[in-house]
Computed example of a mutant assay.
Amino acid sequence: MIVKLGYVAMSMELQNASPSQTMTFAQFSRIKDREAGIRKLERIAISNIENCLRLLKHNAGNQIHFFRLSSRLIPLANHEELADWDYIQPLKESLKKVGEYLNAHPMRIDFHPDHFVVLNTPNKEILSNALKTLVMHRKLLLGMGIDTEHRCVLHAGGGYEDKEKALEQFIHNWGYIQPAIQKMIMLENDDTTFTVKETLYLCEKLGVPMVFDYHHHLANHEEENWQEDWERIINTWKHSPLVVKTHISSPRSENEYRAHADYVDPDMFLNFLTGIKGTIPEIHCMIEAKQKDAALFKLMEDLQGRTGIKILDGSSFEVI
């Protein structure tokens, strides 16, 4: 089984390469000339996208084939006071450059929109804002020439004191979501509310791939055994053009079990891989550790010389 590692949004090694520079609405409001304020927002967004390109070059140089883009590339993109701003138009050239680079250096790219993107909300306004955010992600993907299918990981949402009802609300709301947005979505089990089985229920019902998060499962499993459901998880990917994806991270401490540690515990990771060995030919694992790419490099280092591990390149190995 081939394992490819990825990391999230920012590099600990590249200086001054943040893809998430921002401006608050309060700062924007202080700019007397609204047009000048919008131009400033556009300059920040272009700088963020240029930094994405720097990150992609850093990845290619280090043989990293899997990367999560920041969801904060365009500050105030969906703010109600800026509803008339066509934010994609001024970014077209920058996005095209990213697309051309990805064409020449193929990499799996996806997004994890922020936690306020909740699709099972009973509140129409919250749902409308969530959909606006997903539309923005779709525009970014299209601008970069990336196939939009299964590129946005979401949690199932809030429990609203009745999880069964909350799951049915998700299915109800799904009917209002345009197919182009539905097509982008993957769902992940979370660390406080929806377990593997509950997330699988939605994924199977709606034909959505499930991203298994091992750390979240350990924090929130209601006595479930994830291995019993692994075949079902794999099955949710059978119609996807992409390889099965999981999230990996380690608890910061026993007391702060849900928080992500700086690095990934290699033994915990290998314990998971041993449990799935032989079930699929390839898996992509997104590292959600505080030290970002440094955590990926350290994990690859920690796996050197381990029995049953054959290193393939800077971010990939084979479990044999």
Rank of each mutant, 00 (worst) to 15 (best):
G175D: 15
A295F: 04
N173K: 03
K124Q: 13
K139I: 00
M144E: 05
M186A: 06
K238R: 15
K310D: 13
N189R: 07
H221G: 06
A36S: 12
I280P: 03
G314P: 08
Q182W: 08
N220S: 06
L142V: 15
G314R: 09
D84A: 11
K97P: 03
A77N: 01
I185M: 14
E223V: 04
E198N: 06
D229I: 01
L312G: 04
I64E: 03
S29G: 02
F269G: 01
P179V: 04
D147A: 14
Y101W: 09
M107T: 13
E231M: 12
L73S: 10
S249P: 09
G145I: 01
G308N: 13
F269C: 05
Q21H: 11
M184V: 09
A130P: 06
I181C: 10
D262T: 02
H79I: 00
M107E: 05
S20N: 12
I31E: 14
I234V: 15
L41I: 10
F25W: 12
A83F: 11
D86S: 10
P19V: 08
V196W: 05
E161D: 15
N51W: 06
G145Q: 05
W226K: 00
A156G: 00
L154R: 09
L119C: 00
A156K: 01
V135H: 14
K163W: 05
P75M: 07
E318A: 13
T121C: 02
D147Q: 12
R72N: 15
R68E: 10
E204S: 04
E204N: 14
T199D: 09
F212V: 04
E223M: 11
D190W: 00
E35P: 00
N16P: 01
M1N: 06
H112F: 10
S240F: 08
P281G: 04
L312I: 15
N271H: 12
T279W: 01
E93N: 11
C285N: 13
A45G: 05
W85D: 10
L202R: 08
I287M: 09
E188A: 09
N48D: 06
G158R: 14
N120W: 10
K57H: 11
S249C: 08
S316P: 02
F66A: 04
T195M: 04
D313E: 11
I311Y: 03
E282F: 05
K310Q: 15
D293Q: 07
G278K: 12
A289F: 06
N255V: 08
E125I: 06
E168V: 03
E204F: 02
G207R: 13
K292L: 07
K277M: 00
G275K: 07
V153N: 06
G175S: 15
E125P: 01
D114F: 08
L242C: 09
L95K: 09
L82H: 09
Q63R: 14
M23Y: 03
H217V: 04
A17H: 01
K163F: 03
N51K: 10
Q15S: 11
D162T: 00
Y101P: 02
M1V: 11
A36T: 10
N78D: 13
E13I: 12
E168G: 00
I320D: 14
E223A: 13
Q27K: 13
G305E: 00
L131Q: 08
D86A: 13
